[in-house]
Amino acid sequence: MTTGLLRVLLTSAGRRVELLNCFRAAADRLGQRLEVLACDLTPGLSAACAMADRAAPVPRATDPGYADAVLDLVRRHGIALVVPTIDPELAPLAAAHPAFADLGCRLHVSAPGVIDIARDKQRTAEVLGASGVPVPPTLPPEALRDDPAALPWPVFVKPRGGSASRGLAVIDRPEDLPPAFDEPMICQPRLSGPEFTVNLFVDAGGTLRCVIPHRRLQIRAGEVEKGRTERLPVLRAIAEGVAAALPGLRGAACFQVIEDAAQGPRVIEINARFGGGYPLADHAGATFAQWLLEEATGRPCTAHDAWRDGVEMLRYDAAVFRG
């Protein structure tokens, strides 16, 4: 068990001050000395980098040298745990997993196959649907052009590899479907009903230890701004199906569900990382950050499912001042 100073690196830190604070609070509960490093493309403009103990610049996550830059930080600072926060960095980091392990660093990523599925919404629908997880019918635009009756109209169109609510559109009629798009897209029936994020924690041995849904009461830029935890057995059952369909899933992850009035709950996407609304789960007692620190330091994992129902989060803007 590690009892000395533990260094954690938060990558693509951006505005993730709440996540950083969750790790600090977790270390306090464990009596673990902790130093949090953060990196970003422009750390001088990152609130989380400003709040970290140290900060460093790295290339864009899509740069071929990104994983090597993160590995260099691990090597120079003796980092024991790396926590990615955005989708584009997951694949390059997962591919470099053996190099992190050689340095004695725990890289918080799922298996590359899981990352590939989660980053591709068409494959997400196909893999989950084949495993019995309820998903909406999903087609590429070219298939829908060939057979406009394949989906009910209007349809929801979004990037096949998008995130943060980028590039979303509703198309009312087949004749309004553009002849081409600037990037690969998918089409799904427009679902209507309450939206949920389901956070889940899978331990290092592959066991699903916690499922905590929250109702998305208000959204901003694809991230929950107001939410409330709700213990719903149907969402627990869906989470078990997601974990079974993705046996390489590890650590913190989340998926989005729309409870359509006609079709019932449908999973629309997966994030194989900490979701933006994770601080609500943490406050409700699903302390994923603590459980990762336990695994990284060789402590017994205390992961559980006894979180508090009905906990609400009402976010507001705050500022970091310097100079």
Results as ranks from 00 to 15, higher is better:
L9K: 09
A245L: 11
T42N: 09
L103N: 11
P137K: 09
R7Q: 12
R315F: 03
C105W: 13
A164M: 01
I86G: 04
S163R: 04
A272Y: 04
A281F: 00
D317M: 06
G310R: 00
R160L: 12
G132R: 13
P59A: 01
A130V: 15
H77F: 14
R215V: 05
P178D: 04
C301S: 14
A26C: 05
S192K: 03
L292D: 07
S192P: 05
A262E: 13
A38L: 09
R166N: 05
C39W: 00
L235V: 08
A67K: 03
V127R: 10
G275V: 10
I186D: 04
L217T: 11
T297I: 05
L71I: 05
E312P: 00
V70T: 08
L217D: 14
A61P: 06
A204W: 07
C210I: 03
L107W: 08
L292A: 08
P247C: 07
A261W: 01
L10A: 02
V257L: 02
R190I: 08
A26F: 08
I258G: 02
P59Q: 00
R236S: 14
R15E: 13
L90T: 10
G161D: 06
D72I: 01
W153D: 14
A25M: 01
I115W: 04
G277C: 07
A99P: 02
L103W: 11
G193N: 06
H77L: 09
A80T: 13
H108Y: 00
Y66K: 03
I258L: 01
A180K: 04
A101H: 06
R106I: 12
D72K: 10
I117W: 03
L314N: 15
V114W: 01
L81C: 13
L217A: 11
P134A: 13
L280C: 11
A125L: 07
G310D: 01
L191N: 13
W307G: 07
V133I: 10
F255Q: 03
A94Q: 11
W291E: 07
A56W: 11
L90N: 11
N21W: 11
L19S: 14
G104M: 13
L30G: 08
R145G: 15
G276V: 11
D120H: 08
M51H: 03
R33I: 02
I219T: 14
H283C: 05
R266P: 01
R29C: 06
L314D: 14
R299A: 15
